[in-house]
Design a protein around this nucleic acid. Structure first.
Lengths: 201, 201
DNA sequence: AGTCCGAGTAATCATCCGATTACAACCGCT
DNA sequence: AGCGGTTGTAATCGGATGATTACTCGGACT
């Protein structure tokens, strides 16, 4: 359910509403590029309120990052249920399905570039390690499969972050990349869900 | 050769010197996070001079991006020479070797997240398409191989951007990821060349 | 009815940053 | 020596941005 942005709201609901908006904004503008005012307007509240609810922009980003990984792992866990047959493929589909949560994958990508940041770097490494550990220990994927799975995820992040679909009609190489991609069902979801055009998200 | 930063210099040499410094800074702090003053101090010149030589910060970044792709393609071309046997593996090694050019891979990753930017987005897509076209048309790699090659490149970018080596000794999952990685020779180069610790680069 | 507490904002501040301007130092040339 | 073009800087400006302060509004409960 999408939370209403206009009416008065409990503090907890407002937090979640702002986290959603912030995910979209951080995903579209990266960490430093996104302003707390962007987030506030996207969430339909005033800028000081965003700061007061989360303390600092940095803490807001850490909260967004944590929520993103929880959503990612939840999607993986749900897709991993059932027969072992085609489990990794279902998980891959679930990953691409996260595109419906605007900015989530791009926010993760953004965090993965901030390894040098004293506060965000360690948190981002923890997130990555948690996903890797989930694949290896909980699902039991072997090394080569886990690497290939993650690598393809990073490629998808790149395709989405680049907004490569914008060139789908004009660049034959991009058309090829999408049409004959080894994961055609994913390509279709990307086409439906990925952000495109000049709007920020 | 590394260019001297103190003495008076021809405009062309100074440009190259600043491009090198800017690559490191953009790679460490991302596009919005890096300031023209950071670049200037890294290059040993004053901030206004950086702006004057390149016009705007945006144009500077576009120049850095262009240089990065040229260096990348040059490394690929050089590695692709010789026997077809193990060509992709040599190119993968050349990719990781680019870590010696501080910030280059991270700058590419940064650009790949800026698809929504009206000026940088199209340029970044052009870069990606150029590399894809090189692999497919010039080298003649088939679709599945090209996808897997790029995907692993993006995974390497993530590992580097995260500074995952910082956790090599403390996180057994990270140790595993590096030690038993399917590309052990690359892992070794990463260990030698990747930025680590709390210093910006 | 009145009061109290949590939700929410308007106004403002200090800082940072990209850009501009005006000026200085150096070198090649006649 | 003196002139001119090129390299380079100090000083500064204006806008943006994260954060703080002081305030208002609305409803729940006596």
């Amino acid at each position: 359910m999408t939370l209403e942005a206009t009416a008065r709201m409990s503090s907890a609901d407002r937090r979640e509403s702002i986290l959603q908006a912030a995910t979209a904004v951080f995903g579209a503008r990266s960490y430093v590029g996104a302003t707390t005012d962007d987030v506030a307007r996207a969430a339909g509240v005033s800028q000081p309120y965003v700061v007061r609810l989360f303390g600092t922009k940095e803490k807001l980003f850490l909260a967004v990052l944590d929520r993103a990984v929880q959503l990612l792992l939840a999607a993986f866990r749900s897709a991993a249920e059932g027969p072992e047959e085609g489990r990794l493929a279902r998980m891959g589909g679930a990953y691409v399905g996260l595109l419906s949560e605007r900015g989530l994958l791009q926010t993760l990508s953004t965090a993965f570039l901030l390894g040098g940041d004293p506060a965000i770097g360690p948190a981002a490494r923890r997130c990555f390690s948690e996903v890797w550990g989930y694949l290896r220990d909980e699902v039991g994927v072997d090394l080569a499969e886990a690497q290939s799975f993650l690598a393809n995820g990073m490629l998808i992040n790149t395709i989405v972050g680049l907004r490569l679909i914008d060139d789908y009609d004009t660049d034959p190489r991009v058309t090829e990349l999408f049409d004959e991609l080894c994961m055609p069902e994913k390509a279709e979801i990307i086409q439906q869900l990925a952000p495109r055009g000049s709007e920020p998200w």
